[in-house]
C-alpha cells in the first residue's frame, strides 16, 4: 500500500515547528498573546506528518503569490 505524505503535495507549504524561544520572540515582536495566533488542529494531516504537538507553534513558509515568499504562524490546538 502506498503511503501518503501530505507535505510533498504542491498545495501544502513548508511547516516547521518553532522552538520555545522563537515563539517568545514572535509573541514579543507582534506584541500578542498565544490565543491571538491563527490556529491549526493537532489532527491536521501535516501536523501529524511532522510530528508536532498541541501547544507548539508552527511556522509556515508560503511560496509563490505576489510576495514570492511569506511567513505565517499557527498555534497547534487539540
Amino acid at each position: 500500500m502506498k503511503k501518503i505524505d501530505p507535505t510533498h503535495h504542491e498545495l501544502v507549504p513548508e511547516h516547521v515547528v518553532l522552538e520555545e524561544e522563537e515563539v517568545e520572540d514572535l509573541l514579543q515582536i507582534y506584541n500578542i498573546t498565544r490565543d491571538k495566533l491563527p490556529l491549526i488542529k493537532a489532527a491536521d494531516p501535516v501536523v501529524k506528518a511532522i510530528g508536532a504537538r498541541p501547544g507548539q507553534v508552527v511556522k509556515i513558509i508560503r511560496r509563490g503569490s505576489p510576495a514570492g515568499e511569506a511567513v505565517t504562524y499557527r498555534l497547534i490546538i487539540k
Binding site: I32, K36, S65, P66, T72, Y73
Partner: peptide, 15 residues
C-alpha cells in the same frame, strides 16, 4: 487583525 486582536495575516497580502 480583527476587532478582538486575532491575527488574520502577519503581513497584509503577504507583501
Amino acid at each position: 487583525r480583527d476587532n478582538t486582536g486575532l491575527v488574520i495575516q502577519f503581513m497584509y497580502g503577504e507583501d
